[in-house]
Design a protein around this nucleic acid. Structure first.
Lengths: 235, 235
DNA sequence: GACACGGATGGAACATCATTCCATAATCAT
DNA sequence: ATGATTATGGAATGATGTTCCATCCGTGTC
């Protein structure tokens, strides 16, 4: 007699000794994302690593987007708290902002998927965290209250822009099996071969692109914006 | 006798009168993306709209990523060329940069998917186009050659950051069935209810967030960076 | 100690997607 | 005319996110 395909469970399935938890799932997701990139995080791979089925995961997590922002939030929380350790009451706000920004850069460099996750998780908790920490320093800079939003937005948008760029670079380099520096060399070569009549500037930029240091340039951009903040407005 | 499932084609299938073309496919993709968002672009919907099968599309396009950057490039090409019409040789570079940046903002506002497509298409032709146009103006500003890369990077990263933010906002608002302004109001309300002890700054920002004008703030950020570029370096 | 009940679990099923394959039709060169 | 090349479209493939449901486990109740 044929029984309903769903009616029986193989007797070999054993129940786990220790129960699942949201934290475990998020931690496993981070490991997967770090080792295999954004496309490596699938519910199948995740349930295999956790030795369970997809259904069990959905008991703790709403959906994949929820999982991604949760993983992102975990990284951001660590990132935003760490650099504050060396900050005393005498530290100038510019220095703290640079510290926070660099911490973000390094975090995204270590976990490229955070960059693109951030882009898709605006208004969610990771973003609130960043705004809060950066905003407090902008406030300490003495920026008038009316300009808080604009100033924080500018800093944030710049940081997010770099985040996205880094994420994309990391992903592209990964798919082509290259290290980041080799990947940049490859792009630089392509740019140096652009049509001089149509793209003279981009072509001339190729050399600087090959030699540049992502981290240093990121900081230079932050300084550019900080300079703009403290410089007098033209009417 | 059962014949191979693939051996015969239904006689009702008629061949198109006019042949497909890459441009047709890209144009149809843009329409789909505009009307149904990023997730609305599927090969099924596309082939239905073009009255063909998925296979035919693959003859002209490598894969979905290729299709997306091509659609993105089409928009960027139009966007970068249009504002230059009103520019004469006497126009100050700052003004031209503002024009270009605003054109980008409006394009991304009209086609939110371009924002996220740009994030995933760095090093490709859309990005080269933007770098070229912005870079020429940076050059005209008299920025020393050594700082070309850093300056253009800062502007670009800021623009891309806003692009990503707008794209995400548009997408989120769409999924929740809200207009953008209503969506921002909703986020602002959430922020105003944050824990005052943990998030005092973000909380105080809620009011400005509700009242702000995306376009104006975007331009204010550009001005901030332009001010930083032309202001003297410290040390 | 038997029993019911709700919180968890895990695996099978489902719908959808990008992509590949291939028989075929149209077009072109010779 | 004939063969080769270009182009088409629909069926099959494999992988994905998500849902469904039969089952298990701990806890409190009588």
């Amino acid at each position: 007699m044929v029984q309903n395909a769903r009616s029986k469970k193989t007797s070999s399935s054993q129940r786990r000794e220790e129960s699942l938890s949201r934290e475990q799932i998020i931690e496993a997701s981070i490991e997967l994302l770090d080792s295999s990139g954004e496309e490596g995080l699938t519910f199948r791979a995740l349930s295999e690593r956790l030795a369970t089925g997809p259904g069990a995961i959905y008991w703790h997590i709403a959906n994949k987007s929820d999982l991604l922002t949760a993983a992102c939030d975990a990284i951001i929380a660590r990132t935003m708290n760490a650099p504050l350790a060396s900050v005393t009451s005498g530290t100038p706000p510019q220095t703290t902002i640079r510290l926070l920004a660099l911490a973000m850069f390094d975090a995204i460099d270590a976990h490229p998927w955070v960059g693109s996750a951030l882009t898709h998780a605006l208004g969610k908790s990771p973003m609130v965290r960043i705004v809060e920490h950066i905003g407090q320093q902008v406030q300490a800079l003495g920026v008038p209250k009316k300009e808080h939003w604009i100033t924080v937005s500018a800093l944030l948008n710049y940081i997010l822009g770099v985040a996205g760029r880094n994420a994309a670079n990391g992903q592209l380099a990964r798919t082509q099996g290259l290290v980041r520096s080799d990947f940049l060399k490859a792009v630089s070569t392509v740019w140096s071969q652009l049509d001089p009549k149509e793209y003279p500037f981009a072509r001339s930029l190729a050399a600087q692109m090959r030699a540049h240091d992502d981290r240093k340039d990121f900081l230079a951009g932050i300084d550019l914006i900080l300079r703009g903040i403290s410089s007098p407005r033209r009417t």
